[in-house]
Each structure stands twice: as C-alpha cells, then as structure tokens.
Amino acid sequence: MRHYYIYLLKPEISTNYFGKEWLIFQLFVEGETANKELREIIEKQINYISGTIPTLLVKKGLEKSLKTRNDFYVLQDHYYLDVKALDSKAVLKDHGNMLTISASGTYQAETVFFEVLRQINPAFFAMDFENKNFGWLNPVKQVNYI
C-alpha cells in the first residue's frame, strides 16, 4: 500500500523551490524523525511554508470531476475511488493542513485524485515517505528572463 501526504505550499515557496524539491522533502523527513524539541521548530517551519487546504474547493473539484464515475463515492468526508477493472483503489482524506491518499493496486485511482488536485492549485506537493517519492502535482514553470 502507498501512502501520500499532500501539502499546499505557499506560491512563493513553490516558485523558489522548483528544482530543489529534495530540500522540502528533507524538511518533512526531519520533522518525522527529530527529537521533541527540534520537531516543534520544524513543525513551525512547515506551518510557515504551507497553507491551509481549501477544503470546499477540493470537495467541489472532486465532486464535479468525478460525479459521473460509478467507481467514485464519498463516506464520512472520505473520498473513495475503486477501479475494479484495473485493480486500483485509493482513498483521499482531508486533515485540514494536509491531504492524505492511501492507494493499492495499480496507480490509476491515485492518479485520478492527483489530476483533480493539480487542477485546483498548482502548488500541491506530494510525498511518499516509505518509497522516498516526492514532487509537485503540477510543476511550476520557471520563467526565463532574457
């Protein structure tokens, strides 16, 4: 099973750290492994660079994009996608300051959730600590000034 932690980072952070995603990932890893005193400092840093999840926008975006699918349903504010034909399942949960996606099987179901979130805001940053995967759901394009 794969577990993703998704934070909405502030626009200036997503712009300044494009191409340096490993630094953001490292901050979150240290937050998980640090002692209590250091963890409090890192949590403040994480709160500073991340914004509140726009719960209503996420809810409307998911329902608008996925309402016609037979394999999508909502139970107790958790969003489920079960693509039986492709043996792919995922559940998205909103925790206020972050979203989580737990997925199993093929990558189809989680990809659908990622696509909806990508359309809502370009600054979502996803991390899978167990497999050391991380990145933007919608990479911010760098502007080249001539």
Rank of each mutant, 00 (worst) to 15 (best):
E32Y: 11
K59F: 08
K67F: 06
T55S: 12
Q76E: 15
E32I: 12
E63P: 07
T52N: 09
L57R: 09
E32R: 15
E40C: 02
S65G: 03
P54A: 01
T55C: 06
S65M: 03
E32F: 05
E63C: 06
F28S: 04
F72P: 05
K36N: 11
K59M: 06
D71M: 04
T68Q: 12
I46T: 06
K64F: 12
T68G: 13
Y73I: 03
N70I: 03
P54K: 08
T68K: 11
I41L: 15
K44T: 04
A34C: 08
V29M: 10
L38K: 14
D71F: 06
V58M: 05
I46A: 13
T33F: 09
E37R: 10
V58K: 02
T55M: 04
L75S: 09
I41A: 14
S65R: 03
A34E: 01
E30R: 12
L62V: 00
E63N: 13
N70W: 10
H78S: 12
I53Y: 02
I53H: 03
K60P: 01
E32A: 14
V29T: 13
I53A: 02
E40S: 10
K44R: 11
K64P: 10
L56P: 02
S65V: 02
L27A: 12
V58T: 03
Q45H: 06
S65P: 01
E37I: 11
K67M: 12
K44W: 07
D77A: 08
G51L: 03
D71I: 09
S50P: 06
L57I: 02
P54W: 01
V29F: 12
